[in-house]
């Protein structure tokens, strides 16, 4: 089992005020942010990521916008620092909200650059973004999934094409010459991660051999990881063999409670009858669940 350390690099000093006003994000004015405290926090969080590398943990970084819950506004910026300060950790971007990004080729360039910089330690998450990211990005929510898949296809083609340039004239994105330099260290692309909840996302991820993860929603995502999907695709040798999960445990839980919660979370989706190799898939699935402890 691989364990990934994840911190949103929160600006917690504003939470009390945010809760009083009814929201920690989007509409909470940044007058509630003190640049000096932010400077200290950001550097502390980056020190913690360096420590993870020393103790053998892998590292996950995400991004959010207009929020006191997450000071990371750019996964590639954060990982650029972390890549230089770490030696061994796998670096998981989970990820780039590509349906909210106007320029997918720029995403491909940044991810390839990070992969080169880190010597092939990048795990590349291409995510849809939470609903509250729509307002800061002002991306159209009504066609978000069409945009997501077009950006996804373009990014992977840009990263894996070695005889470019190629042109792209899609529904949302248009390029004359796509020919990224540098290309990624891991060929043809770094491992790709997705997030989701629905069986449809599970199917799309399984078909592509992507890791599929769910954040804070393991119970709702049951059908995505469900036995039937594993069986359907496992039968063709392309099951969801790369699931991941993240849940919260509260700091005030006693250690024993946390261990109990972890065991419950790691028990995974209910067992379904299936062929032995399908059960192996699910065993891997259970092992990959990640327990997060809130650090205070």
């Amino acid at each position: 089992m691989r364990v990934w350390y994840f911190s949103e690099m929160a600006y917690h000093p504003a939470w009390e005020e945010g809760l009083k006003r009814g929201s920690l994000r989007v509409v909470l004015p940044n007058a509630n942010y003190d640049p000096e405290i932010g400077h200290r926090l950001l550097n502390r969080y980056l020190d913690e990521f360096r420590l993870c590398d020393e103790v053998g943990l892998d590292i996950m970084v995400n991004e959010h916008h207009s929020t006191s819950t997450c000071l990371t506004i750019s996964v590639p910026m954060a990982l650029a620092v972390i890549a230089r300060e770490t030696k061994r950790a796998r670096l998981l971007s989970l990820g780039n909200p590509i349906a909210n990004r106007p320029d997918p080729v720029r995403v491909a360039e940044e991810m390839a650059w990070l992969d080169v910089l880190s010597g092939g330690r990048l795990e590349m998450g291409l995510v849809k973004g939470a609903p509250y990211e729509i307002a800061p990005a002002n991306s159209n929510p009504a066609n978000l999934m069409r945009r997501y898949w077009e950006a996804h296809d373009l990014i992977l083609k840009a990263m894996s094409t070695t005889d470019g340039p190629f042109s792209w004239e899609g529904e949302f994105f248009h390029y004359r010459n796509v020919n990224i330099w540098p290309r990624p260290y891991q060929q043809p692309t770094p491992p790709v991660w997705m997030t989701g909840l629905s069986p449809e996302t599970g199917r799309m991820a399984a078909e592509r051999g992507h890791v599929v993860g769910t954040l804070l929603s393991l119970s709702a995502a049951g059908p995505m990881f469900g036995g039937r999907l594993c069986s359907d695709f496992g039968g063709r040798g392309r099951g969801i063999h790369k699931p991941a999960g993240l849940q919260l445990a509260r700091r005030e839980h006693r250690d024993a409670q946390i261990r109990r919660k972890a065991r419950r979370l790691c028990s995974g989706p209910p067992r379904q009858p299936g062929r032995p190799e399908d059960r192996d898939d699910r065993a891997v699935a259970r092992e990959r669940y990640l327990l997060r402890r809130y650090a205070g």
Partner: peptide, 10 residues
């Protein structure tokens, strides 16, 4: 509502 957003989001 989804259609309305599609036509007039940005």
């Amino acid at each position: 509502r989804e259609a309305f957003a599609l036509y007039g989001w940005k």
